[in-house]
Nucleic acid binder design. Structure first.
Lengths: 194, 194
DNA sequence: CCTACCGATCGGTAGG
DNA sequence: CCTACCGATCGGTAGG
């Protein structure tokens, strides 16, 4: 399992430092020595907690991706109007970005270093997320709460914006998470409302 | 100079292959041997055309960044209404993304591998682009063509979407560039119109 | 443009 | 958790 619930505190600590370094320098440019230095041990000692460098990246990415999927599926399965589901999904994204900025930053580009089964699992998560979002969108259209515009482009636009929230939270500290939520909902949804 | 106008065809060829490989595997994970193989020479032969691996990344990123800045500044300095400038800027972004998808993909994450003066130059370009875009936005607000919403969030949202167009063009081939332009203008701007 | 080669660094292992 | 060490690969140089 990839859930942090079943990890030793030492492993959690390794993943946390690794995520920060991967964000700063990229996965390939970060050495195990770099990570070990942050943790406060020698590089070979990391192997008491991990099996490979790849495993570190895999654990970080699959853990955060599964968090996203389970949280959006919860919303999609709730008894709500489609438009309110979309609002909730945006709110969730802001909160996850706020709580895990380093891990989420890796979603943007570092997943290309996953291989074989790990890559497949990751891409499956991504598809599941997009599918859930598309469900909500279609429900909202059917319920006549948003305009009939190009579905692909509208969803692409919303998800593109959400994907970058993590980088924006640190840049503009004056926006707290609640303010940012409501502003994004306004910008992303109100233009689509009937 | 970084403009491709002053490069030998061999160097242009090296940069083109490098951009594609950097997109696929990342800058750090791409070796000079990988690039040389694509070009059809041995790795040391690249040094007849380049001075370092860093220079390849620098040339690619500064060239594409300067293309973006000069094109948006042209629009900003034109005699147009703000709202029409924004539409033109979106149209330009789609076209540049269509013509240079690999180079633009590096804007997202690989610029972190630039150093010192190169990094500064790159970030300056980025600031200049954002400044020009912000000018147009404020002009459109002043001319009462778009609503008074949070300026930072609105601009952030538009630029986030534009930044990802390159990845979307290859995924959905059924959209040609003209169609995509008008759809994006609708989605990104119409929600803001008064 | 090539072959031959360099020092440095990498992820990972052995053995305690 | 450490020290010692391994083969492989890296960016880059020498010399022609």
């Amino acid at each position: 399992m990839t859930s942090t619930l079943f990890m030793s505190t030492r492993k959690v600590e390794i993943l946390r430092h690794a995520a920060r370094l991967f964000r700063q320098k990229g996965y390939q440019a970060t050495s195990l020595k770099d990570i070990a230095r942050e943790v406060g041990v020698e590089a070979p000692s990391l192997y008491n907690h991990i099996n490979s460098k790849h495993e570190i990246l895999k654990d970080i990415l699959l853990d955060i991706a599964s968090k996203f999927v389970s949280s959006i599926q919860d919303v999609d399965h709730a008894s709500l109007k489609g438009i309110n589901k979309i609002e909730k999904a945006i709110s969730q994204y802001v909160n996850l970005s706020y709580n895990h900025p380093n891990e989420i930053s890796l979603i943007t580009g570092e997943w290309v270093h996953l291989e074989d089964a790990d890559l497949k699992t990751y891409l499956d998560f991504r598809d599941q997320y997009e599918t859930a979002f598309r469900n909500m969108y279609r429900q909202a259209v059917k319920e006549c709460d948003i305009k009939e515009v190009n579905e692909d482009v509208a969803i692409f636009s919303i998800l593109s914006t959400l994907r970058w929230i993590y980088s924006w939270i640190n840049k503009n500290r004056r926006y707290n998470v609640v303010e940012l939520e409501s502003q994004l909902i306004t910008i992303l949804i109100d233009g689509l409302r009937r």
